[in-house]
């Protein structure tokens, strides 16, 4: 079965039967997952930072690195698999972990999640499920056939959202 592995900033979309999308070890990064029940297309982007303004020249080579450019780029990839528009799409989010710190000094994870939600809202979408924050890293696997999003983390049994 085809397994498409996304690195940091990677974007993937597929409607191939039996295929899976996977991204490893999200720390403060987040995975934005989009499911299109109409065309049975699944898509995922591994976002590292909230805003491309920090280094605009990186967008040309790796738009998925940033929430503001990664999510529109994911829609574009899904369109190539037949997805028509944002209407009816199902969104899920995972990741955004942080170090133990009551003051949230380096809150990149939280900012990534907020930025992703803001971009999604601009498309009229909101996540139906999310597993965000806390102090553990997450690996995300997305199965095309079932649309099930499986999460794993070292030392924990797998779970789904």
């Amino acid at each position: 079965m085809a397994e498409i592995v996304l690195g940091i900033g990677g974007i993937g979309a597929t409607n191939t039967k039996g295929a899976t999308l996977k991204t490893y070890a999200l720390g403060s990064c987040i995975a934005v997952v989009i499911l299109d029940p109409q065309t049975r297309t699944v898509g995922m982007v591994h976002v590292a930072l909230p805003d491309s303004a920090i280094k605009p020249e990186k967008v040309a080579t790796l738009p998925g690195y940033f929430a503001d450019t990664g999510i529109p780029a994911l829609f574009e990839q899904m369109k190539r698999c037949g997805t028509k528009g944002p209407q009816g799409l199902i969104v899920k989010l995972a990741g955004g972990a942080q170090i133990m710190d009551q003051n949230n000094t380096f809150n990149i994870g939280k900012r990534n999640a907020l930025a992703a939600k803001k971009i999604l809202w601009s498309f009229g979408l909101a996540p139906v499920a999310e597993d965000l924050g806390d102090n553990y890293s997450r690996t995300v696997t997305l199965a095309t056939d079932t649309g099930i999003m499986t999460l794993s983390s070292p030392g924990k049994p797998n779970w789904h959202i």
């Binding site: 070890a25 590292a48 170090i99 133990m100 003051n103 070292p154 030392g155």
Partner: peptide
């Protein structure tokens, strides 16, 4: 390194940030 997804496993990000770093280093959020 841990925030970037490069931890060593089950210890995940279960470590505390020592806030007093600001007394010795300039690294703004």
């Amino acid at each position: 390194a841990m925030m970037g997804g490069y931890g060593t496993g089950t210890d995940n990000l279960f470590y505390r940030l020592d806030q007093r770093y600001t007394d010795y280093l300039v690294v703004g959020p």
